[in-house]
């Protein structure tokens, strides 16, 4: 750990509200510790802005250890910045050479409208899960956990998919702003586990219908999502989603269509 500091030029997207027009603003940052995380550098910027009586930059963040999925910055042309397998909060300033100009923008996707500055509304992800990302089991009905035997390989595969933190980097990275990696991670986790199998037929099509209705794009298998995923979730889950979807759409003895979930009025903040 070193006390070395560096200076940077920041180009940050500022947008006062969802309907306001945004623009890139330039800030000079002096004496940033190389050991600081990217978000700590933003804390420093905000303290600086506050000291000058200016509005601090709004950005989402919470756990700062790479698991809550809240942080969401598009840094120098890539979600969560230049390193792979990490979130913005795990990115450190030593990654950026002294004097570098750093662009910071919000996730850009129609279903992720900007709320303010770098903060976007990711409610669409919640609604996709609500469309079927669960096993329908009530509290208290479960049999003994060891009565469902799950081979280690299957449990590991489910865990690989379940590692998704719902940050939205996949959407941000995808040139089509597709949410397929996110949808497939949940579909895949529950499709390989016996607990989730009985509902897997409906799950895939309902979650996909919700994704489509939110306005995400279609997958063109560029692999950008998986490359930028902080949890390095594999494209094989998308293949499984495709498979589940195809099979169920053509074999399920039911033609009733899922009605996409609407954003509730009480969450309509004008974004």
């Amino acid at each position: 750990m070193s006390a070395e500091t560096r200076n940077y030029t920041l180009k940050v997207w500022r947008q006062s509200g969802s309907s306001a027009k945004g623009e890139i603003k330039t800030y000079e940052m002096k004496n940033v510790s190389v050991g600081a995380s990217f978000l700590e550098m933003f804390d420093q910027l905000n303290e600086q802005l506050l000291a000058n009586g200016e509005d601090p930059v709004a950005f989402d963040h919470d756990c700062r250890e790479g698991i809550c999925g809240m942080c969401s910055m598009y840094i120098n042309g890539r979600p969560h910045g230049p390193d792979t397998g990490i979130t913005t909060c795990q990115l450190h300033m030593r990654t950026f050479p002294d004097g570098e100009t750093i662009y910071v923008e919000p996730w850009r996707a129609k279903p992720f409208p900007v709320i303010k500055d770098l903060t976007v509304d990711r409610g669409a992800f919640d609604r996709i899960i609500q469309a079927g990302g669960y096993v329908s089991v009530n509290t208290g009905n479960a049999q003994d956990a060891n009565e469902i035997l799950i081979p280690k390989a299957i449990a590991d595969e489910a865990m690989d998919a379940a590692a998704c933190i719902g940050c939205g980097a996949c959407v941000a990275a995808c040139k089509n702003a597709s949410a397929m990696l996110f949808v497939s991670a949940k579909v895949s986790q529950l499709a390989v586990l016996p607990q989730g199998k009985s509902e897997s037929s409906r799950r895939a099509q309902n979650m996909l219908a919700q994704m489509d209705s939110e306005g995400f794009g279609a997958c063109t298998n560029t692999g950008a999502c998986s490359s930028e995923c902080p949890k390095e979730i594999s494209l094989t889950h998308i293949a499984r989603l495709n498979r589940e979807y195809l099979r169920n759409r053509f074999t399920l003895n039911d033609v009733e269509e899922f009605q996409p979930i609407k954003k509730p009025d009480y969450l309509d903040f004008g974004v």
Partner: peptide, 29 residues
């Protein structure tokens, strides 16, 4: 049609600075 709808999914503002070559091949994009 896909080109059109996929483009629309990005929303009104595109990135000012994007570096897709870091995460995907040119052909795929």
């Amino acid at each position: 049609m896909l080109i059109q709808s996929n483009k629309a999914a990005r929303g009104a503002n595109n990135y000012a600075y994007s570096k897709p070559e870091a995460n995907s091949s040119w052909t795929s994009r």
